[in-house]
Design a binder for these strands. Structure first.
Ligand SMILES: Nc1ccn([C@H]2C[C@H](O)[C@@H](COP(=O)(O)OP(=O)(O)OP(=O)(O)O)O2)c(=O)n1
Ligand SMILES: [Mg+2]
Length: 790
DNA sequence: ATCCTCCCCTAC
DNA sequence: TAAGGTAGGGGAGGAT
């Protein structure tokens, strides 16, 4: 849906996207999702514009949340229960939200699912899929060959499967509310904002202690041991000494979020599939998630950490960095310079003491163990942390840095995992110390300049990164990604065989508008256009997402057109563009019969907004998931009634100053733009839906078609922004034809499910203070038609 | 050289 | 059943 800057902290802007409103339908008996339960909490709500003064406490923001109580269940060694049976086991008992039936919510229409997906993007005959013979059989085994659409329809005929698809209106909500990784990301974003805010508030009164270059530093890396598992175990203390893990179920495809140290002795690891874990550890106990409890523990954790008085950087909900250098110096008065052994010793003692107190404090408050690594920089603290765990602390002292770091394997360094580790192995590098013997050139040849430099620094214990110095972000992006269906139920659980269809491919593409917009219709429309450009058969779709980048803060003056200069008055980037008309309308994604349908015919320039004026497809559209994004905010059309200037003639100068155009009222500008469009016919661009108009003035990274699809005021703003430096149009849309997969992947962990639209660029120039972004749909009402149509 | 797009990789 | 999200660093290769 639409998104707005809700809170402007000193260095961050927070946008909210309320998915439980936007993506779900109120369902009286649906269990309240976690996010709802904690909607007022510190971790999920951002800061309400803080009337509170500067603070070193997080808890004052906290509100208690409630956690549904769940029960643990021993994991049967050969876990082959039938699903129905499993539902009766404690962890997935009917009382549990895990098995809470949603089939009775009455929103799913019993018919039409075979046509529903049919028309989404292309004729089904575009792709034919051979159904794997070993595929599931919700009903009877269907014909062996069918289109992917038919196959999907067949799958959807099983109510259980339907529940795990967008045919279930609360699927997304439920999915996210139970996605640990989603929570992790959300928590992290909020904590980052919080730390920055606290730092800024603190900065008003005291300036940051600045260590002299070369002086000793004392960095602490603090991290809960087995965080989820330890917290969940508090409600099941009888398992504390037994191998235990937190997961959604004991089924073989469930992923272990966290396991305790007894389980690790068996080789069980976080992120491991239950199937594997059960093989390694047949007696593994499985506990349910308790997200609210994780939040509470985290708050107490950060309260303790903030009370130390150092510079704090949040790494995760259970993990933080502290630059305690100033705290440590306060007792040595050496300022970390010189080699007075007494001073060094006093500093190190102080650091250890601070860490010990911190661990005790957190243990007392939360009942859970943390470990602390202390080092001269972030890298060293992290290395020390490994040696500190579990329930301990370790200070990596300068004289032992080279030895200890050198004995690590490269993959124990932060930032090095399988891929980079594999490349290094090809270079004969296994241990960190081996890196030191390889020439910079060779390293850079394999890894690139930055990565190789960082690695050689790490190999020598060097890390210049400063705690808390997250450079103010120049751009932020957020992404909603959803999977339509994950797995055929009784397909072999080997993830390589999901759906019996082998691999998935990923497709990413970005489009640059050239000017910031929060208009969901514009964004959604372009997203759909991109989706269409792939010409995928919808039945083949396994997931999709949309990402926005180059976010800008809404400047207060821009947001209120009435009170400011002419320029902002007419031209605030977030002032509703001419899409601000009365009717809410959108284009159905399945409108493929007329892909060339001109959004604006050449002779039809008055109502020049190609988006707002595109009439709603009259037939009831089957809303594709992607449409949720553009549908959600349609009622946005409320501002800006255009002036009636219909009788007026405007002559557009042949070479108008874009800055002048941009100052015009929207409606007048619209007319000018339309006129100009007619005057200068498009250069050859594919997918052109009308006059390509100003393509010749566009910077090359802006696709002409994208430009043409923008509301006119945005067009003008783009021109004003870029017009001064003429550029030749380039990069027309590339994907006129069905795209070829760029890469073959397996639908395993990092396979096809990731974003289908692109990670777009990282913008480098940093004029804004935008730092953290979340999304929230603003208009609860807008989802009801969407849901109906699903 | 630097930017841009489209990725890949990593971390929690 | 299961809930495989998301941000940021950065490389490859083409355009400017
Ligand atoms: N693949 C993963 C890794 C982590 N987490 C979650 C659960 C973890 O409890 C929490 C913190 O991650 P850590 O890497 O700190 O792991 P733990 O705290 O569980 O164990 P430890 O820190 O003792 O190694 O993040 C997860 O859901 N999935
Ligand atoms: Mg941890």
């Amino acid at each position: 849906g639409d998104y707005r800057v809700l809170d402007e902290g000193p260095r961050q802007k927070v946008l909210k996207f309320d998915d439980e409103r936007g993506m779900t339908q109120a369902s009286p008996d649906a269990r309240r999702g976690y996010k709802e339960q904690t909607d007022n909490s510190f971790y999920t709500s951002q800061f309400k514009s803080s009337t509170t003064g500067p603070s070193q406490s997080l808890s004052q923001f906290a509100e208690e949340t409630q956690t549904p109580s769940k029960h643990s269940v021993p994991l049967a060694a050969n876990e082959q229960q039938k699903p129905a049976d499993r539902c009766r086991s404690p962890i997935t008992s009917p009382e549990s939200y895990l098995c809470r039936s949603i089939e009775s919510q009455g929103v799913v229409t019993p018919t039409g699912r075979d046509t529903q997906n049919h028309k989404v993007m292309g004729p089904p005959e575009q792709r034919r899929a051979v159904v794997n013979a070993g595929s599931p059989s919700p009903a009877a085994e269907p014909a062996k060959e069918m289109t992917s659409e038919e196959h999907n329809a067949w799958l959807l005929s099983d109510p259980r499967l339907r529940k795990s698809s967008t045919a279930n209106p609360v699927f997304l909500k439920q999915f996210y509310s139970e996605s640990r990784l989603h929570h992790l990301s959300t928590w992290k974003a909020n904590l980052k904002s919080a730390m920055q805010r606290l730092a800024a508030e603190k900065g008003l009164t005291q300036k940051r202690f600045k260590k002299k270059p070369g002086a000793r530093g004392y960095i602490m890396h603090v991290d809960f041991d087995s965080f989820f598992c330890a917290v969940s175990l508090k409600k099941h203390p009888e398992y504390a000494d037994k191998p235990t893990a937190v997961a959604h179920s004991s089924g073989p495809g469930s992923e272990i979020a966290s396991c305790n140290y007894p389980a690790r002795k068996f080789g069980v690891k976080n992120g491991m599939w239950m199937k594997r874990a059960a093989e390694l550890c047949p007696d593994l106990k499985v506990l349910p998630y308790d997200f609210p409890a994780y939040e509470k523990a985290s708050r107490l954790f950060y309260d303790s950490i903030l009370s130390i008085g150092g510079v704090v950087q949040s790494v995760s909900v259970d993990e933080a960095l502290i630059d305690a250098t100033a705290v440590v110096y306060s007792t040595s008065d050496s300022q970390g310079i010189g080699i007075d052994e007494g001073n060094v010793w006093r500093e190190q003692e102080k650091a250890d003491e601070v860490a010990t107190r911190l661990r005790e404090s957190i243990k007392t408050k939360t009942g859970c163990d943390v470990s602390v690594g202390i080092g001269g920089n972030i890298l060293q603290a992290k290395v020390a942390l490994r040696r500190a765990k579990p329930a301990g602390q370790f200070q990596l002292k300068p004289e032992s840095v080279l030895d200890i770091v050198g004995e690590l394997t490269v993959e124990q360094l932060p930032g090095v995992s399988h891929s980079i580790g594999g490349k290094l192995e090809e270079l004969g590098i296994k241990f960190v110390k081996d890196v030191r013997g390889v020439s910079k050139e060779r390293l850079a040849g394999a890894l690139g300049p930055k990565t190789s430099e960082k690695l050689s620094d790490y190999a020598r214990g060097i890390d210049q990164t400063e705690v808390g110095e997250q450079p103010p972000r120049k751009s932020v992006s957020a992404e909603v990604n959803m999977k339509i269906m994950r797995r055929c139920l009784d397909a072999p659980l080997d993830p390589a065989k999901h759906l019996g269809h082998g691999r998935c491919d990923t497709f990413n593409k970005s489009a640059t508008f050239g000017v910031a917009t929060h208009n969901s219709e514009t964004i959604g429309k372009e997203a759909v256009a991109i989706l269409r450009s792939f010409k995928l058969s919808p039945g083949d779709l396994r997931g999709l997402g949309v990402q926005m980048t180059k976010l800008e803060p809404i400047k207060a003056q821009q947001a209120r057109p009435t009170q400011s200069s002419q320029r902002t008055l007419n031209f605030g980037p977030f002032v509703g563009p001419s899409s601000a008309k009365k009717s809410s309308r959108t284009e159905a994604i399945d409108d493929i019969e007329s892909p060339q349908k001109p959004k604006q015919s050449p002779g039809h320039g008055i109502d020049a907004d190609p988006i707002a004026d595109d009439p709603l497809t009259p037939r009831k559209p089957k809303i594709h998931p992607a449409m949720a994004l553009s549908k959600a905010a349609q009622e946005d059309a409320k501002a800006n009634t255009p002036l009636n200037v219909s009788g007026t003639q405007f002559i557009l100068p042949s070479n108008p100053d874009p800055a002048v155009i941009s100052e015009l009222p929207n409606d007048i500008r619209s007319r000018l733009m339309g006129q100009r469009s007619r005057q200068s016919p498009a250069p050859e661009v594919p997918r052109s839906e009308g006059p390509a108009s100003m393509a010749t003035a566009l910077p090359s990274q802006i696709d002409a078609d994208v430009f043409n699809a923008l509301p006119d005021d945005m067009k003008a703003e783009v021109l004003a922004t870029y017009g001064r430096r003429p550029a030749v149009p380039q990069s027309p849309r590339r994907d006129q034809h069905p795209v070829q997969p760029r890469k073959q992947t397996t639908p395993t962990k990092h396979g096809g499910i990731r974003s289908i639209f692109g990670k777009a660029q990282r913008q480098r120039d940093a004029q804004t203070g935008v730092v953290q972004t979340n999304f929230r749909a603003l208009r609860p009402g807008s989802e009801s038609p969407m849901v109906e149509e699903i």
